[in-house]
Design a protein around this nucleic acid. Structure first.
Length: 467
DNA sequence: ATGTGC
């Protein structure tokens, strides 16, 4: 493959053959080598052949192979000639993270840390197939799909201010009638649950500040205890993705779309199928925002019951798997981010006035037992449609990780390092062993050095609740 | 990621 180095941490596969744009990869030499080990680059090249793609088919530093599109992929499509694709968003629609700030120093929290984790584990249903503890009434699910985090707040799960610190205010326009009964059924019993895989609820503390000015604007300081929530739209988003992949596969002929890979199934943005998927996807995204909002509420209740007070304010809530209509350089695009984080710079209208003078908080979770980062969107990201990485990214598949590690050993090792693990299944702990992931510090460094989102704070784990 | 499959 023809790789051209175009910057310190920037590579290009030039446009040739059926490619409509080049592939651009944000990575160090080492991270690029990891991407060459699977189909990441091959998939990014396939994406560059899709109708209406503009700029480039991008791969972020944590890129790895996914369904059709690479994870860590960003692709922006012209609103007139472009397509929208469920594979460009992923199965876990609006998988994302939010960070809650405590008013406690981490030393203050340590004494009752284990009780707190156990309380959070009890308060937030977790694990594969886990069911929420809320019984939705007839019609409630449609309200969730339509109003997202706003529904949750109106039903006393959290504070009105939380919405201000959530992308899109925790709600995108949707139409519940475009979401199948099956997706609604799977979702309604799971609302307010963590799920499995890499999803977690983690107690962390700010171990290092890199940018005092941004940290101050974000309300972060060294030693501060924080809570990170990582989950998505559960079976609801999964079902929406499956449903519309099938719809779009059927529609390929109708729109005379010839694709390099069936997994890229898509439809023109302006077509009925395209518009319906976008609205259904938005409904599943709303479900995920409501989900994280409810988990926020129960986390606050856990703090309340263990420490007698809870002042958990939100830093921000970011989506990692989503398509959004956005303006870039005076034009509107359907920006697909799959395993990528929006990273908007200061003065962009999407950002809450509280952060407008510095830029959007970008929250990047590490793997279990490793650091996480808060970064700040920078104007350099305009070359990447306002995007950066979303996490460490796997190096070992789940199946390989299970063969190589025992959950009990992983948990013991973390325990020795002062990180408590409370998990539904030890199998998941093995799947999520830190060694199965890339080095988050290196991913954050590349984002920082390229200047697309710059480092504000490094967070270290104290304890984790796993599915 | 996922009622861990067509």
């Amino acid at each position: 493959m023809n790789f051209k180095r175009i910057g310190d941490n920037l590579w290009e596969v030039p446009k040739e053959g059926n490619m409509k744009v080049p592939v651009r990869i944000v990575a160090s030499e080492e991270l690029l080598e990891m991407m060459k080990m699977d189909l990441t680059i091959h998939q990014a090249i396939n994406v560059s052949m899709l109708p209406g793609i503009e700029g480039a088919s991008f791969v972020m530093p944590d890129g790895h192979q996914g369904y059709g599109f690479p994870i860590g992929g960003v692709a922006a499509f012209n609103m007139e000639s472009g397509i929208i694709s469920p594979g460009g968003v992923g199965y876990d629609i609006n998988c994302g993270v939010r960070l809650l700030k405590t008013d406690m120093d981490h030393a203050e929290l340590l004494g009752k840390k284990h009780s707190l984790l156990v309380s959070m584990f009890k308060n937030v249903p977790s694990g594969l197939g886990s069911k929420g503890k809320v019984r939705l009434r007839q019609g409630d699910m449609d309200e969730v799909l339509e109003h997202g985090a706003k529904w949750a707040v109106e039903n006393d799960y959290g504070w009105k201010e939380d919405l201000k610190y959530t992308e899109e205010g925790g709600r995108m326009p949707s139409d519940p009638r475009l979401i199948s009964e099956q997706a609604k059924k799977r979702g309604s019993s799971q609302l307010g649950s963590l799920g499995s895989g890499n999803h977690f609820l983690e107690l962390q503390y700010v171990s290092e500040i890199f940018d005092e000015r941004a940290a101050k604007a974000f309300g972060l300081y060294e030693g501060q205890a924080v809570v990170m929530i990582h989950t998505g739209s559960r079976g609801c988003g999964h079902q929406v993705c499956s449903d519309y992949l099938r719809t779009m596969e059927k529609a390929l002929k109708k729109y005379e779309l010839v694709l390099p890979d069936r997994e890229l199934a898509c439809a023109p943005i302006a077509s009925q199928e395209g518009r319906e998927y976008f609205k259904a996807m938005s409904g599943a995204a709303n479900f995920a925002w409501a989900n994280r909002q409810m988990i926020t509420h129960w986390t606050r209740e856990s703090f309340e019951s263990v420490y007698g007070h809870s002042e958990l304010e939100m830093l921000y809530d970011v989506a990692h798997n989503i398509a959004k209509e956005e303006q870039h350089k005076g034009k509107r695009f359907m920006v697909h981010r799959k395993g990528a984080t929006r990273a908007l710079w200061k003065d962009r209208p999407e950002i809450t006035p509280d952060y407008k003078s510095v830029g959007q908080p970008v929250i990047i979770p590490g793997s279990m037992g490793t650091a996480s980062y808060v970064l700040c969107g920078h104007e350099n990201a305009s070359e990447f449609f306002g995007s950066t990485a979303h996490g460490a990214g796997r190096v070992l598949s789940r199946s390989k990780a299970i063969k190589r590690f025992r959950g009990e050993d992983v948990s013991d090792d973390l325990g020795k390092r002062g990180i408590d693990v409370v998990a539904d299944q030890m199998r998941t702990v093995a799947e999520e062993a830190p060694e199965a992931y890339k080095d988050i510090d290196k991913v954050a460094d590349v984002s920082h050095e390229v200047g697309i989102a710059t480092k504000v704070a490094r967070l270290l784990p104290l304890g984790v609740v796993k599915g």
